[in-house]
């Protein structure tokens, strides 16, 4: 069994009447790339702040590298690298100044841990004298990651690092995380983008303060308990209306150019018959393997 890096037991936190996270328990192994997937308001940020010793939980406990998140907060602060959800660097300092500032407050230098961040840093090095506020979104993200790692943390906590970043930069960012993982750092990431789940070793699907499922992306998909069909006809909008009207439809959601459909009846021939009866043309129906988003929505509507 691999070593446990993070262990959370029955963790809850409320803000007034609103439950931010509700009785969460999970364990994350050392060296794992673990994703918390869920929309805004699911409780990801609250959870991460508790893990980073920035918030106190109401009940339950959390520990990082066997340090308690409440009692041993000073020790934890030395071993984590934290990248908050909002871009949190000094806009009026240059790339280089930001980096060396964060290096100093962690009692290290840029040179000392240069190897760790080199791959990422060389991409932004040409702009090292530019003020951070004037970088593009993708570059800000890279700089923030460098700053969070400059002290060679044991656990990297990244709160929605890819939100608002374009698809290309997002992909690059995940490639960087995969590489970092190889150096043995435990990484926990939160994201609202469901498609990023497949890039993690394990994920927790989180919604409304509850973890709906924790597993590898493959296992989560294999737990999808019904047949899923991708359906397409000549008129997307008409099909959407017709399928939502149909008494056999269980769920029908748009997915790119298809609708993903689950039906009460186990016989998929009825779909085509129904659509034909509604005078649809160019009907295309195929059974597909669900993706994480399908699984998420399935769990959500339970």
């Amino acid at each position: 069994m691999s070593e446990i890096a993070i262990s959370v037991n029955n963790l809850s936190k409320k803000y007034g009447d609103i439950t931010a996270i509700n009785n969460l328990s999970f364990e994350i192994n050392k060296g794992e790339l673990f994703g918390f997937i869920g929309p805004d308001g699911a409780g990801k940020t609250t959870l991460f702040r508790i893990l980073c010793t920035l918030l106190l939980p109401d009940t339950g406990s959390a520990s990082l590298c066997s340090f308690d998140a409440v009692k041993d907060y000073k020790k934890i602060r030395n071993i984590i690298g934290y990248m908050p959800g909002k871009f949190s660097l000094y806009q009026d300092l240059s790339v280089e100044e930001n980096l060396s500032f964060f290096a100093t407050i962690f009692g290290t230098t840029l040179e000392e841990n240069y190897d760790l961040i080199r791959d990422i840093y060389i991409q932004i090095e040409p702009f090292k004298t530019r003020q951070a506020g004037k970088l593009s979104g993708g570059m800000k993200q890279k700089l923030a990651l460098c700053c969070a790692m400059i002290h060679k943390p044991e656990v990297l906590v990244l709160d929605e690092p890819t939100t608002g970043v374009d698809a290309v930069s997002r992909k690059e960012f995940w490639e960087m995380l995969r590489k970092l993982k190889e150096s043995g750092i435990t990484i926990i990431v939160s994201t609202p983008y469901m498609d990023e789940a497949s890039l993690c070793d394990r994920v927790a699907l989180i919604q409304g303060g509850n973890i709906m499922s924790t597993d590898t992306p493959e296992n989560i998909i294999s737990q999808f308990d019904t047949a899923l069909y991708a359906v397409k006809t000549h008129s997307m909008y008409q099909m959407m209306l017709d399928l939502k009207d149909w008494n056999q439809t269980e769920t029908a959601y748009l997915f790119g150019q298809y609708m993903h459909l689950t039906i009460k009846d186990k016989d998929n021939n009825t779909i085509e018959a129904y659509l034909k009866s509604k005078s649809h043309k160019d009907i295309e129906i195929k059974q597909i393997t669900p993706n994480i988003e399908d699984a998420f929505m399935r769990l959500m509507s339970k």
């Binding site: 805004d40 909008y237 959407m240 959601y253 748009l254 998420f296 929505m297 959500m300």
Partner: peptide, 24 residues
């Protein structure tokens, strides 16, 4: 401008239903 950022997947689709309706 990025109307659905951070929204849960079901609501995101309901949002697009509304967009389709408006376009229609």
């Amino acid at each position: 401008d990025e109307p659905t950022g951070g929204v849960d997947p079901i609501t995101r689709r309901q949002f697009w239903d509304m967009i389709y309706e408006a376009a229609n």
